[in-house]
Design a protein around this nucleic acid. Sequence first.
DNA 1: TTGTATGCGTTATCAA
DNA 2: TTGATAACGCATACAA
Lengths: 333, 333
Amino acid sequence: MATIRDIAKRAEVSPGTVSFVLNGKGDHMRIAAKTQEKILKIAKELGYLPSISARRLRNSESKNVPVIAILWTLDTRASLISRFLKGIQNKSLFKENLFEILIQPYENGKLSEVESLHTGNKYNGAIIANASDEDLRYIEDSNLKVPIVLYQRKSDKYSTVNVDGKKTGLDVAEFLYEKNQKNVGIVVPNLSSQAVSLRQDGFLEGVNTLGMNNLCVKYGDFSEKGGYDAMESLIKQTNSLPEALFFLSDPMAVGALSACHEYGIRIPEDLKIIGHDNDEQTSYTAPSLTTVHLPVEVMAGACVNQLIGQINQTIETATKEQYETNIIVRKSC
Amino acid sequence: MATIRDIAKRAEVSPGTVSFVLNGKGDHMRIAAKTQEKILKIAKELGYLPSISARRLRNSESKNVPVIAILWTLDTRASLISRFLKGIQNKSLFKENLFEILIQPYENGKLSEVESLHTGNKYNGAIIANASDEDLRYIEDSNLKVPIVLYQRKSDKYSTVNVDGKKTGLDVAEFLYEKNQKNVGIVVPNLSSQAVSLRQDGFLEGVNTLGMNNLCVKYGDFSEKGGYDAMESLIKQTNSLPEALFFLSDPMAVGALSACHEYGIRIPEDLKIIGHDNDEQTSYTAPSLTTVHLPVEVMAGACVNQLIGQINQTIETATKEQYETNIIVRKSC
DNA sequence: TTGTATGCGTTATCAA
DNA sequence: TTGATAACGCATACAA
């Protein structure tokens, strides 16, 4: 990459002159028009790109604030991202530019290829938002240079901001039990996620303990379409649907509502549906969706607090923060 | 902010030693255990924060890639953000870490306070995603140091990636005309946005030209709740609803569907509804929502291309890219 | 117009 | 065995 010195050499002037010209101060500094032209031409030929790092280093007015990376996989679903960023955006520290957010993508299963976690050259700390089981094992065995916080994951080694997924599953089972829905089923996103597995385990354990009947475990894509397809296939293959279905994500539940509508299955009369996340749209479906509230925004803020604490060395050890989920009762169940 | 040299002075060692210790290479460099302790203690006392800029500058393996800032207001709605980022995430240049994304928040109406647009110290270029009319006027009168691209805005001075909002409005009016819906209305988000105004103008012009009747222009918050409230108030205050309503955002249309459901108004029999954006959820509402497809993901990618071209000086002048919208016909209209 | 110092962390070389 | 010194990366302000 060409630097200001490379340009200076070619143009046979000093680096300072190049700097002036490239910053539009050429006239003010009375640099000859010809020289300016020459410099601009060479800069373009060499594809000059100002180094932000050097600029930042130089001008010390702009305080040295922590840089926080958000690592998410390329397949992270939309509703998580927007709620997560909303949670961060509302932090006053962020509004006041007291830390910076860098978006760092990585491919699911290839967290090991993100070198900056080892060099510490790109950010002061990282929030890992959606680690797959594989990536989780990897970092558990690694010694990273930068502090990290895991969102919705467990870890022996790192700070986490989490909920008790198992308890959530149990809660839902109990909720259905008390509503006298004994024949139930569950629809699960087909991805390798600790959070999802725990909810599923908890639910099935609860169903078992309470003497209910689990009629189906159905898998599908983590999306409206996945929920629609799963529901449609259930409708077509079964003569008797369960009394209630627990969808482990709201988008899937929304898709399922649509499928039920299509096939004339009345919610909640013929089938009760309960979702998970409490995404904004769930208040406005027809019927409105009973769902588990996951405090994404609050947890995102907690991730930032946690990480900044570690970066500032005011928080010593890896801490585990746990948040509560609760069932929002609406009309679908 | 404490530097490595500050620590060195206090600890009465050299900066190099401090660097080794803080990077965990103390043992390898055979620094005495006591010295290491002292250094770590002082670093903590002084609240040492490694300067990412200095680190980046030093290790030149990590290429100097363009840093792109996304400037969005604190009140930007969720659905835009997630689709926009999805569009960027899918760019192969981003996956390969050939540019970086910095999230830069600002307060609506206070774009003028974002100094980094003038200093160029924080990023090589910026995408301004949601400029209010006020902020737009400001930048139109300013001389910014970094290249910018405006998303969904017009400008005499800067590159833009836009759609023809007026034409969209006209298209919708014509669409309703051809469906023989002559008594119509429009529901508008109550915010100062060029994009929204243009759609509204186009629609009203079309309604006028085609000899249709515009029965209402209703305002509301840019959200499901805003749409719900607007619809509810329309239902309560009018004896005769329009035959068709155009909502300038999908979340509002979704909220309105919910209100109609609540009040027993059948869609599309009693009232036809058409939204705008084609957010993912609109395929799965009951009934599914007819809406205007806005190619957010594609436009986000175009913003990045445009900006990188300008940063690399391969694109000279401000260029205007225009994308097409089209009406996705589903069941609500 | 130019030369030089500066900002900060890393690291290769040198010294006791 | 323990540590110091100095050069380097890049842009820019300031004195010359």
